[in-house]
Amino acid sequence: MATAPVGTLYRGREGMWSWVAQRITGIAVFFFLYVHVVDTALVRVSPEAYDLVIATYKTPIVNLLEVGLVGAVLYHALNGLRVIAVDFWSKGPRYQRQMLWVILGVWVAVMIPGTYYMMIHTVEALFGSTP
């Protein structure tokens, strides 16, 4: 393998893959936002119509997808702050790699309890509550 070009922030390794992930999570979250505005708009139809569509959010599979959505939003937010630091902080470009590992650590630290609280009802409903 040829050596990576020196001094390029976005080609190869952490810099490029964090950018790829930023695009993928951004697209996913944006398309969900379209759907979410439309499902919320059902409050203008009737309480029954709204409660019916919200009931699908409470099913196990959609609940799991919601955890994925929160994970995507959280990554996009944290990496977005990292990009701002790279752009505006004089030492940002030098520490871009370390900052990526920091935000990934924060992501894991938030997602572990986050997943627990988001899934607890689904897990209890599926496997029975523990005493």
Binding site: T40, V43, P47, Y50, D51, I54, Y57, K58, N63, E66, V70, V73, L74, A77, G114, Y117, M118, H121
Partner: peptide
């Protein structure tokens, strides 16, 4: 992130959301 925390994590999360909640 505030919206996601209130809607998905706090007080039972999505399970308590319905028309009356909105």
């Amino acid at each position: 992130l505030g919206h996601l925390f209130i809607m998905n994590v706090l007080d039972g999360g999505v399970q308590r959301i319905n028309f009356a909640f909105v």
